[in-house]
Simulated assay, not measured.
Amino acid sequence: MTAGLDADVVGADAAADRRDEVVAEVTDHAGRIARELARIQGGDYGQRAFDTDRGTWTLKYEGGDVQYLRFEGRGADTYVVSTQQPPEPEDLAAAMTDYDAFVESFNDYVRSLDGVLDDAADDLPAIESVDSVVEARERILSRMREACDQMAQQLNRVEGNDYGTFSARVGSSRWELKWEEGRASYLRVGGEGGVYLLSQYQPPAPKDLRAHADDFSGFVDAFNEHVSEISDSLDTVEL
Rank of each mutant, 00 (worst) to 15 (best):
K207L: 03
G182S: 11
C148R: 03
S217D: 14
S142I: 02
R169K: 15
A152M: 02
V170N: 12
F166S: 05
G190K: 10
V195P: 02
G218C: 03
R145C: 00
E192Q: 10
S185Y: 15
S199I: 12
Y196T: 05
S199M: 10
L197S: 01
E192D: 08
Q202G: 11
Q202I: 06
E135C: 08
E192H: 11
K207R: 12
F223T: 01
V133C: 09
D214H: 13
R188H: 06
A213L: 08
V158I: 14
A211P: 03
Q202R: 09
R137P: 11
V220G: 00
F223P: 00
L187V: 04
M151S: 08
E181W: 15
E180V: 11
F219Q: 01
R169S: 13
S142D: 07
Q200M: 09
G218M: 04
Q153L: 01
T165E: 15
N161R: 15
F223N: 02
S142C: 03
V189L: 06
W179Y: 14
V170A: 14
E135T: 15
L198K: 01
A168Q: 13
I140F: 05
G190T: 04
A152G: 04
A205L: 09
M144P: 05
V130W: 10
R145N: 03
A213N: 09
S217W: 02
R210Q: 07
S129F: 07
T165Q: 15
L198G: 04
C148M: 12
S129K: 15
E159C: 08
F216H: 11
S185C: 07
S172I: 11
D162Y: 12
C148P: 06
A168K: 14
A213C: 01
R183K: 14
G191Q: 05
E192I: 09
I140N: 00
D221T: 03
P204H: 00
M151V: 14
R143P: 00
G164H: 12
Y186E: 10
A136P: 01
E159Q: 12
W179S: 03
A213E: 07
E135P: 09
R169E: 10
T165N: 15
D215F: 04
L155V: 08
S172Y: 08
L209G: 11
L141S: 05
D214K: 13
V195M: 04
D131L: 13
F223H: 02
E176W: 13
D149M: 04
V220F: 02
A136Q: 06
P203C: 14
E146P: 00
F219S: 00
R188S: 02
F216L: 06
L141E: 10
A213F: 07
N156M: 11
E146W: 00
G182L: 07
L198F: 02
L187I: 06
R157L: 14
E180D: 10
